Amino acid sequence: MPIPSKEEMYRALEERHGAELQKKLDIASVAVCGLGGLGSNIAIALARAGVGKLNIIDFDSVDISNLNRQQYFPDQLGKPKSDAMRDTLERIAPYCSITSYNVKLTEENIPVLLKDADIIVEAFDRADQKAMLVNCVLENLPEKYLVSGSGMAGIAPSNIITTKRITKRFYLCGDGVSDVENGMGLVSSRVLICAGHQAHAVIRIIAGEFDI
């Protein structure tokens, strides 16, 4: 069966979201930095919502240890995550403009690779890399909105994962406490909850809803 036309898919989204919001989503540009448990789920949620431009970035490859919580398939093992996620997103949202980079983000390349995004999503695993990206964006791209994640490990209650507005343009999602090093690690359901918080924060920013 042929895939629906761009107009048909847009109309279906417009019926769900309303014309005003869907137009805002369609012209929005979002960068997802890190395509692991958080980033892969966030990217899929944004693509399904009809975000018009996605910039996805990761330097890692798909490993069997990723399959319990990340949106990859066994036949993608060994493939760069940026390529595997681009392929998946193109199946979900064939008319979304997707730019993928198989590169490690650094203080030097962040201002270049993220400069065209309206909203930047931090979805790294390591605390030091999270801090590096957040600090670099706040210092070099202060006009951007930034949505970050912190604390989603273990099987603690889902309701302690929240979204907080830290500054005018910086949002933090998670429980802010749990650490993969101090417990059972990352469980798919809880990672997905935090990813949902981040994706929804992005959608609300696009909609012009800036409160938490």
Rank of each mutant, 00 (worst) to 15 (best):
M1S: 14
P2S: 14
R11A: 15
G18I: 07
L21I: 01
Q22K: 09
I27G: 02
C33L: 02
G34I: 08
G36R: 01
G37Y: 07
G39N: 03
S40C: 03
A43I: 06
I44Q: 06
A45G: 14
A47K: 04
R48F: 02
A49T: 11
V51F: 07
V51Q: 14
K53H: 14
K53C: 01
N55V: 15
D58K: 05
D58Y: 05
D60G: 05
V62I: 15
D63P: 02
I64R: 12
N66G: 14
L67T: 12
N68V: 10
R69V: 13
R69L: 14
Q71V: 13
Y72W: 03
F73Q: 15
Q76P: 06
K79Y: 03
K79D: 04
K79I: 12
P80R: 08
P80D: 03
S82P: 13
D83L: 15
A84Y: 06
M85T: 09
M85A: 13
D87F: 03
T88S: 14
L89E: 05
L89N: 04
E90M: 12
R91L: 13
A93V: 05
P94S: 05
Y95K: 08
C96N: 11
S97Q: 14
T99G: 01
Y101G: 00
N102Q: 13
K104F: 14
T106I: 12
E107L: 00
E108Q: 11
E108W: 01
I110G: 10
P111R: 01
V112W: 06
L114I: 07
L114D: 09
K115T: 12
D116I: 00
D116V: 01
D116A: 02
A117M: 05
D118K: 00
V121K: 00
E122M: 00
A123R: 00
A123I: 02
A123D: 00
F124G: 00
D125T: 04
D128C: 03
D128Q: 13
D128W: 06
Q129D: 15
K130S: 07
K130A: 02
M132H: 13
L133E: 11
N135V: 00
C136S: 15
C136H: 02
N140L: 08
N140I: 00
L141A: 10
P142D: 09
S150L: 01
A153G: 10
I155Q: 08
S158P: 04
S158H: 07
I166G: 02
T167C: 08
T167Q: 04
T167E: 07
L172I: 04
D175N: 05
G176N: 05
V177H: 07
S178K: 08
V180D: 09
E181W: 13
N182D: 13
N182Q: 15
G183W: 08
R190C: 06
V191S: 07
L192W: 03
L192E: 08
C194V: 11
H197S: 09
Q198W: 01
A199Y: 04
A199G: 13
H200P: 03
I203P: 07
I205V: 14
I206H: 12
I206E: 13
E209P: 09
F210C: 13
F210S: 11
D211Q: 14
